[in-house]
Design a protein around this nucleic acid. Structure first.
Length: 507
RNA sequence: GGCCCGUUCGUCUAGUCAGGUCAGGACGCCAGGUUUUCAUCCUGGUAACAGGGGUUCGAAUCCCCUACGGGCUACCA
């Protein structure tokens, strides 16, 4: 079998949302699994929808995801250019070849004329009028007009498009890797524009020509392309490339977590989760959309989550590194039905990855957050904090938000704990405990615990009587990790100081 | 409306192609245990073959119909 070459072909019309990232990911995994090449092709044939910065965004956000291209606008390759606007001159000859061979034709209709035709057909009872075998005879095109008229118009420089001449009553079949045989009758297809009046091809032609020229072996794309796949098959056939036509695989869509319909940016805003891999600022409105990266997601967790939205390995293993994904991935195991996005599961994946990280790695990330908050701390200290906190956190930022007391003395004391656990005799106990701890030579967690328990015993107190009060003195909170660990890490001096402060403030 | 695709616990899904174990796992949720507390962790529980017809000794699995959902229906991709 010839070399596997797949491409991810986005339009630079905005940021890539997670559906697009997943399409890129599956292409990447498939290519790497087969030892093939993965190509990025920018499909910017629609100048009107171009968005500043979108191409850069696509490249950089995929890079963050760990998805790298073998050929692209950045790294080049022997099948370039990799941007359709730079390939502009290549498409017209193919379109004209189709006209010459009778598979396509010139059409001069203005948008007003097209609208008029549609209105006319609707009035006549056709719900969705098409430019097809029935209507084309009434329009301004090289099939209805005389040859002289066509030549005259073309020489006069009149704007024209090239449309495919859809045959009557032919079954077009394609064998989709995910869906099996898909059959469509050409009577249900229209004479799609393949070359626009602005000199650019439409997606359909550009896509087929480029996939052919770039020797693409498999087209893996979203399900929204399935209805036009038969058109592409016809294009390959008419261009004489059917024997090297790529295999198709149409991926199921990612759906809204609630209700129905495909996932959109709105859903993320509404339900409070990112739909973009990295943060995006709309260049026009300056509106900022949050990204997984900025929200504190570990990229491996993000990728792992995405890979499972529509694919599964058929085993019970759920945690997969990129290498393992490459190893296990196959298009045969991609599902057919759309998958509702599950935000809880996404958080769970992040938690799993967080735990797998070493305290050193976590400390590095936490230091970044600490710096943002104007806190300087020794690496060793931060590492121990991470050690104590990582089992309770989903994100690195949780360790800051739930563990501020490691770095700052409490400024307030949890009311509920005070109300329930700070009794009349509590100050006396805390004060005595403080004096006992002050004399402790070994301020290790174990030693503090032993001393604490000894004190409880001597005074015939239970854990619940004094420990919550002790905790609130040190952390201001009613819950958290082992208090003896916290005290030990804070050190004797700080511990004593916090107890004194609490005694003053709480009373 | 037309065309195409789809439908297993609330969610992601295994099982469907080669019909035959109480339909398995994970997330979530609930309960119990562990823990000074909260979280973690452990144990257990919850809950599904869209409906109806066939074919068959036997159907989640094969066929048909219906319903529901999705996509497409541009000189956008």
């Amino acid at each position: 079998m010839s070399e596997v070459r797949v491409r991810f072909a986005p339009s630079p019309t905005g940021p890539l949302h997670i559906g697009g990232v997943r399409t890129a990911l599956y292409n990447y995994l498939f290519a790497k699994n087969k030892g093939g090449k993965f190509i990025l092709r920018i499909e910017d044939t629609d100048q009107a929808r171009f968005v500043e910065g979108a191409e850069q965004y696509i490249i950089e956000s995929l890079k963050w995801c760990g998805i790298e291209f073998d050929e692209s606008v950045v790294v080049g390759g022997e099948f370039g250019p990799y941007k359709q606007s730079e390939r502009k001159a290549m498409y017209l000859p193919y379109a004209e070849q189709l006209v010459k061979e009778g598979f396509a034709y010139y059409a001069f209709d203005s948008s007003e004329e097209l609208t008029a035709m549609r209105e006319r057909m609707k009035a006549a009872g056709v719900p969705s009028p098409q430019y097809n075998a029935v209507t084309r005879t009434t329009m301004q095109n090289s099939l209805a007009l005389s040859e002289d008229e066509v030549t005259k118009r073309r020489q006069a420089g009149e704007a024209y498009v090239i449309r495919i001449k859809m045959p009557r009553n032919e079954e077009v079949k394609l064998n989709d890797i995910i869906r099996g045989w898909v059959v469509v009758n050409t009577n249900n297809m229209d004479d799609k524009v393949i070359f626009k009046s602005d000199g650019m091809p439409t997606y359909h032609l550009a896509n087929v020509v480029d996939d052919y020229l770039m020797k693409i072996s498999h087209v893996i794309r979203g399900e929204e392309w399935l209805p036009s796949a038969p058109l592409h098959v016809l294009l390959y056939r008419y261009l004489g490339w059917e024997d090297v036509m790529p295999q198709f695989a149409h991926l199921p869509l990612i759906l809204k977590p609630d209700g129905n319909g495909k996932l959109s940016k709105r859903d993320g805003d509404r339900l409070g989760f990112p739909v973009f891999p990295t943060e995006w600022m709309n260049p026009e409105t300056k509106e900022i959309s949050s990204g997984y990266r900025e929200s504190g997601y570990i990229k491996e967790a993000f990728i792992n989550m995405l890979s499972f939205l529509g694919w599964n390995p058929g085993t019970t293993q759920e945690i997969f590194s990129m290498e393992e994904l490459i190893e296990s991935f196959s298009l045969e195991r991609v599902g057919k039905a759309g998958a509702k996005f599950d935000f809880d599961k996404t958080r769970w994946f992040n938690q799993q990855y967080l735990r797998a990280k070493s305290k050193e790695e976590l400390a590095q990330d936490l230091q970044l957050i600490l710096k943002e908050n104007g806190i300087e701390a020794e690496d060793n200290f931060v590492e121990t904090v991470c050690e104590q906190l990582k089992e309770r956190a989903t994100f690195v930022k949780d360790m800051w938000e739930e563990g501020k007391y490691y770095f700052l003395s409490p400024t307030s004391y949890d009311e509920k704990t005070i109300r329930k656990k700070w009794k009349e005799d509590t100050p006396k106990y805390v004060s005595e405990l403080k004096n006992r701890l002050a004399e402790l030579a070994d301020f290790s967690s174990e030693s503090i615990e032993i001393e604490f328990k000894k004190y409880l015993e001597e005074n015939e107190l239970g854990m619940g009587k004094l420990l919550p009060a002790f905790r609130v003195c040190l952390t201001g909170l009613g819950m958290g990790p082992s208090l003896f660990d916290i005290a030990s890490l804070l050190g004797k001096e700080e511990t004593i100081k916090r107890m004194e402060t609490a005694l003053e403030k709480i009373n």
